[in-house]
């Protein structure tokens, strides 16, 4: 049942954003790997061996290791999160590889995701896109009763489909244009579908897209690689929805002149 494999491993090492980076051959450290280990546990094992050899461990982002936090993500043989569909790197297991297989591990590559170190990249652009409008303004204590506004089940379900995004960045990594359209649209759609999100819907569709462009992500050219790479299978129909909202907002939305004034 417990079978071990040897792999030909190449890992991208890069000391920081300004370092050029290079592949290192770690085949010698990638022998006798249990097929029941996850891909990250495989990297753990390689790291343990590197450390005992006096070498620095490979840096990669990871945290929950159960496919929900969105921290992990490397490109394995050209595929973000590796060969298994709807699966994050942490849930990918080594039984998906044959012994002797050649594995090239690279970071997510995009101008908007500078490399922090080795396989870890800076995805703070996603946070800034959310800052631009990925929220509903509601202070604690100001909310009406939760059942006051009914939300049709189909709408709530669709909204949840979009909200399932874990912000891992695989969509950017997979896109030939390094576009973050799928990420941005998932948030625009999640909030824009719900009745609570209507008040800020147009403003959101303009400002989030604007921030997306400023971060240096590419534009969507409808290749749909993002959807295929998405570990949560977020649909590109949300990109169509974002396009619709953005175009409509661009044509109709006027910012109010801010004459709120005082109360006396």
């Amino acid at each position: 049942m417990n079978e071990n494999i040897d792999l030909k491993l190449h890992v991208w090492r890069q000391n920081g954003p300004s370092d050029g980076g290079r592949f290192e051959d770690y085949t010698g450290y990638a022998k006798n790997i249990s097929t029941h280990a996850s891909f990250l546990e495989f990297l753990d094992v390689v790291n343990d061996r590197l450390i005992l050899d006096g070498k620095e461990a490979i840096a990669f982002d990871h945290d929950c290791r159960e496919g929900i936090c969105g921290s992990c993500g490397v490109v394995i043989n050209g595929q973000p999160h590796g060969p298994q569909r709807a699966t994050t790197t942490c849930q990918l297991h080594m039984r998906k590889f044959q012994t002797g297989a050649e594995i090239w591990v690279e970071p997510f590559r995009a101008r908007a995701f500078p490399v922090v170190k080795d396989l870890a990249v800076d995805r703070s652009g996603f946070d800034r896109i959310v800052q631009a409008g990925g929220f509903i303004t509601a202070r604690a204590g100001s909310a009406p009763d939760a059942n006051e506004i009914p939300v049709p089940k189909t709408v709530a379900d669709k909204s949840m489909d979009a909200a399932a995004c874990i912000g891992c960045g695989a969509c950017v990594a997979a896109c030939p244009n390094a576009s973050a359209s799928l990420f941005t649209s998932a948030k625009v759609a999640h909030l824009g579908l719900l009745p609570q999100g209507q008040a800020e819907r147009m403003k959101r569709a303009i400002s989030m897209v604007g921030q997306h462009e400023k971060e240096g992500f590419g534009a969507c050219s409808n290749h749909y690689e993002c959807e295929a790479a998405c570990p949560k299978q977020v649909s590109v129909e949300f990109i169509a929805r974002m396009n619709r909202d953005h175009l409509k907002a661009q044509l109709t939305y006027v910012e109010s002149a801010g004459k709120d004034g005082g109360a006396g």
């Binding site: 690279e106 534009a219 690689e225």
Partner: peptide
């Protein structure tokens, strides 16, 4: 214009390129 911008969005190419989608 879009193609130029898109090319700029990924300055370093992947060592291995592979399709993910199954269209």
């Amino acid at each position: 214009d879009l193609a130029l911008r898109n090319a700029k969005a990924r300055p370093t190419a992947y060592r291995v390129s592979a399709d993910v989608g199954r269209q």
